[in-house]
């Protein structure tokens, strides 16, 4: 499947771009992160501490076990600091 992946805040800075299109067979968010980590050092660095990473699938917050079937957009970002 083809996924649009978005990165925000320091994840965007570490990875070096705000979004990319990825072809993947990953079944869950966790599996997608493992694929991304294996790509290059900057990905491994960005995803080195998963306690500091939040995920949204199709703009809804979710966790590492969330399945990706039918998903179009996955976003990775640090804990939010609104207000």
């Amino acid at each position: 499947m083809n996924l649009e992946i978005l990165y925000f805040a320091w994840l965007r800075e570490r990875i070096g771009h705000p979004k990319e299109s990825v072809e993947t067979d990953a079944e869950t968010v966790g599996a997608l992160i493992r694929e991304l980590r294996a790509r290059e050092d900057r990905y491994a660095l960005a995803f080195s501490d998963l306690d500091a990473v939040r995920v949204a699938v199709d703009q809804e917050l979710c966790d590492l076990d969330t399945p990706l079937e039918g998903a179009r957009e996955v976003a990775f970002f640090p804990p939010m600091t609104g207000g």
Binding site: F8, A9, W10, A56, L61, P78, M80, T81, G82, G83
Partner: peptide
């Protein structure tokens, strides 16, 4: 306000005379 702090997708970066810094979420906010 409590939910805006931790559940609305905003991130703050401070650019100061001491450098730049992403504002970290506080455990107390969660």
């Amino acid at each position: 306000m409590d939910y805006l702090k931790s559940r609305a997708p905003f991130w703050k970066k401070e650019i100061t005379d001491q450098g730049t810094n992403w504002v970290a979420a506080k455990d107390t906010d969660e």
